[in-house]
Amino acid sequence: MNRKKHILIVEDEVKLARVLEDYLHSAGFNAHWLANGLDVQPWFKEHPVDLVLLDLMLPGASGLEVTKALRRFSTVPIIMITARVEEIDRLLGLELGADDYICKPFSPREVVARVKAVLRRTQGGKPDEEPLPATLALDAHSFRVTASGRQVTLTAVEFQLLHVLYQQPSRIFSRVQLIDKIYHDHRIVSDRTIDSHIKKLRKKLTDLLPELELIHSVYGAGYRYAPQTRALEEALS
């Protein structure tokens, strides 16, 4: 019998931490809560941890400081929780080793879904876990995408955006990161341009797979590829 996964919640908002604990327990996880960043390393070294939900703004030591300290000796997946949407915080967090971001306000059910997705990506899915649906066939020569016997043709930029997101399911890409990966000639491109391309890409993907929502906006952070049924997407919104 497989042991339950252990999730460490580091959050100084008591009500929010308790809600996350309850939802994680209901989803079959063990969860423990700490409120001070300075308490993380001592507790971490004495207990098994499969994933850390880590608030950015903490007493004692910030989420970025905690991430940097943990990465000196551990590769445990870290999902940062933040109400700060400045680009520098997100990029610095990724450079230090955070695996994903969730921006406040959020649905606790979304947090559980993201925890499962990061664990699946970093530790490998178990046979009894539901795999991500919607396997797409991407043809870089024709910019065509095929799924379930249907086909849609994208523009060059739309295809590159989809390719970047599709290669790393559930990872959040900021608009700046997408611009850097798509436009190699260092042209000046606004966030609004990326938003416009994503909007058109989503419409085409909806024509391809109307039952699924494939690309999701993450408030204040960017976009991620994570196939969900539209009913689940509505429940999490």
Rank of each mutant, 00 (worst) to 15 (best):
M1G: 09
R3M: 10
R3G: 05
I7W: 13
I9F: 00
E11H: 03
K15G: 11
R18G: 14
L20H: 10
D22F: 14
D22A: 12
L24G: 03
A27Q: 05
F29A: 08
A31C: 12
A35T: 15
N36S: 01
Q41W: 03
Q41L: 15
Q41K: 12
E46W: 03
H47A: 03
V49S: 08
L51V: 10
M57F: 01
L58D: 00
S62I: 10
S62N: 09
G63Q: 05
G63I: 03
G63M: 08
E65H: 00
E65R: 01
L70M: 06
R72F: 12
T75P: 10
T75S: 13
P77M: 10
P77R: 09
I81D: 01
T82A: 09
V85S: 12
D89T: 07
E95I: 08
G97I: 00
A98C: 13
D99N: 14
D99K: 00
Y101Q: 09
C103I: 15
K104V: 14
F106Q: 11
P108C: 07
P108K: 07
P108V: 14
K116F: 04
T122G: 04
G124H: 06
G125K: 13
D128Q: 12
E129H: 10
E130A: 11
L132P: 02
P133E: 09
L136A: 03
L138E: 06
H141W: 08
S142L: 07
V145W: 00
S148K: 10
G149V: 14
V152N: 00
T153S: 12
L154K: 03
L154P: 01
L154E: 01
A156L: 07
A156S: 11
V157M: 02
V157T: 15
V157E: 12
L162P: 02
L165K: 04
P169K: 02
R171K: 11
R175P: 01
I179V: 15
D180R: 15
Y183T: 01
D185I: 03
R187M: 07
I188R: 05
V189T: 15
S190E: 11
L201I: 01
R202C: 12
K203I: 15
L205P: 10
T206D: 15
L208Q: 04
P210K: 04
L214W: 01
L214E: 02
H216G: 05
Y219M: 12
A221F: 09
Y225C: 02
Y225N: 02
P227G: 06
Q228C: 10
R230L: 12
E234F: 09
S237G: 14
S237R: 15
